[in-house]
């Protein structure tokens, strides 16, 4: 009898020990992530709040001036020729960029999914630009799309000779507000460079998506007499929809934040035909010392990104639990 009682007591002690261990571990788990939580709280949320505060102030010179200005900085931005041009350029860039990245990405992914030879080689050719910096891309494409040299030498033979990023043309160029609304030719040049760099991303995403669709799904549809095109349109494409949405959101937020590529390739451009909020914010804040204006641009950028990202994050969270 006795040994059994003893072991039961021992077990009790052990359980108690384990409970204190678990409580201790709980504490350690908080300590593990505490530095990161504090860092994010300060460097992300605190600093955003501080930028918001600056954007409502009169700090538009080298000397900080935190007197309250209300929405003055925002109002003057929306009346500003340069900022209006930025909004147009960003919208045009975003739409062209997303459409091309999605279209090219889907096409190349479908091609690569045909059990082709040298698939790895082809994949690497489409993927490697992603390992490059936007600065490198900008420097190289600035040379390729240089209107006096570059690709125009080839196009001249066909009879077209666009001015690329040096063009100030806006098509169709309807006057609205202070700016001409339409597609600036120069933005197309930047879009080409950006598409070259980022198409690999959508290829990778779509390829992963295509590979995740079991062959049986296609086989079954084929048995029912569906054509290859019908299978793609009615079955494959809908299955790829979540990936399409992810790519759209990622590319949209890249478009709204774009800075390095444009800064390296064209800068603001004549008449601000390639200017974007990222470049404007950088120049007005760090070259012109208009801190409050720069902060206002930054907050507008943040809000526009949040429109895409917050619902995305929340829906991801729901999908998880």
């Amino acid at each position: 009898m006795e040994p059994k009682v003893k072991s039961a007591m021992q077990m009790k002690i052990q359980v108690r020990k384990k409970k204190t261990i678990v409580a201790k571990d709980r504490l350690f788990s908080f300590l593990f992530i505490l530095p990161s939580i504090l860092a994010i709280a300060i460097f992300v949320y605190g600093f955003i709040g501080w930028t918001g505060y600056v954007s409502l102030s009169n700090w538009n010179s080298q000397i900080p001036d935190f007197s309250f200005a209300g929405l003055k900085n925002y109002v003057s931005l929306f009346h500003d020729f340069r900022f209006q041009a930025d909004l147009r350029n960003t919208a045009v860039f975003m739409i062209l960029f997303i459409v091309l990245v999605l279209g090219m990405g889907l096409m190349i992914a479908v091609f690569l999914d045909q059990k082709i030879k040298f698939e790895n080689l082809f994949r690497n050719i489409f993927f490697f630009p992603m390992a490059l910096s936007f600065i490198v891309t900008g420097v190289v494409w600035q040379w390729i799309l240089n209107p006096s040299t570059g690709v125009n030498l080839l196009m001249k033979k066909v009879g077209i000779e666009p001015m690329w990023y040096t063009s100030v043309k806006v098509i169709p160029g309807v006057e609205w507000g202070k700016i001409q609304v339409g597609i600036p030719i120069a933005v197309i040049a930047v879009v080409i460079a950006a598409v070259w760099q980022m198409t690999g991303f959508s290829v990778a995403m779509y390829l992963a998506g295509l590979r995740a669709i079991p062959d049986e799904v296609r086989e079954a549809a084929r048995m029912d007499g569906a054509t290859e095109f019908q299978i793609f349109r009615k079955i494959i494409f809908p299955l790829l929809l979540p990936i399409t949405i992810s790519v759209i959101i990622i590319m949209a937020h890249i478009s709204l934040k774009i800075f390095d590529l444009i800064y390296a390739m064209t800068g603001p451009g004549a008449n601000f035909v390639t200017d974007v909020p990222g470049v404007y914010m950088f120049e007005t804040t760090f070259r012109g010392n208009y801190y409050a204006s720069g902060a206002a641009i930054a907050i507008i950028m943040l809000l526009s990104v949040a429109i895409f990202i917050v619902p995305y994050l929340l829906s991801n969270r729901k999908g998880e639990s």
Binding site: S36, I37, I40, F43, V44, Y45, G46, F47, I48, W50, T51, V54, H253, L256, K257, F259, P277, G278, M281, F282, T285, Y291, G294, A295, I297, A298, I299, M301, L302, V305, I309, V310, L313, L314, N316, R317
Partner: peptide, 19 residues
């Protein structure tokens, strides 16, 4: 986690002045 994740999408211009 979601709150931390938001930090990777922000345009860094929005934290640059205080940083």
């Amino acid at each position: 986690f979601t709150a931390i994740l938001f930090g990777m999408f922000i345009p860094y211009q929005s934290i640059l002045i205080p940083l």
